[in-house]
């Protein structure tokens, strides 16, 4: 299931989690115009750049966003990331539930979770 993304990272740090990531609403345009990705990310998160969250915690959505920015994002990163979260106007669903009901960035990822990012910033 693991693909090119992050393979080296995961080999180094041991355990990984497999996730399905989907894009919609134009967010896919920032990720090589591919809507559906299967990724394998480290099970243990790195600290956030600002130090707001420490290392050695179980990987959460905050870490996933940071990891996607470092490993998957192809262009115009400001259209996806703002600070340590997604840019306002990008909707996030965790297993088809609004992330606002799941603790947003603090949600701890589980194997086989499906995370969807939908942009509302593209034309209607």
């Amino acid at each position: 299931m693991a693909n090119d993304f992050g393979l080296n990272v995961t080999m180094a740090s041991g355990e990984t989690i497999n996730l399905k990531i989907q894009f919609g609403g134009g967010a896919e345009l920032l990720f090589g115009n591919i809507r559906s990705h299967e990724v394998s990310i480290p099970a243990i998160a790195a600290a956030t750049p600002s130090g707001s969250k420490q290392a050695d915690r179980p990987s959460d959505i905050t870490f996933l966003i940071q990891w996607m920015k470092d490993n998957m994002l192809k262009e115009r990163e400001g259209l996806f990331v703002e600070g340590e979260t997604v840019r306002p106007g990008i909707l996030v669903l965790i297993n088809d539930t609004d992330w606002e009901l799941e603790g947003e960035g603090d949600y701890i990822l589980q194997p086989k979770d499906e995370i969807v990012f939908i942009s509302t910033l593209h034309g209607g």
Binding site: G24, G25, G26, L29, L93, D96, V116, I118, S119, H122, G123
Partner: peptide, 11 residues
Amino acid sequence: YFKKLDYFSTE
């Protein structure tokens, strides 16, 4: 999204 409606999005 939940109705799986077919729409087009780009700038």
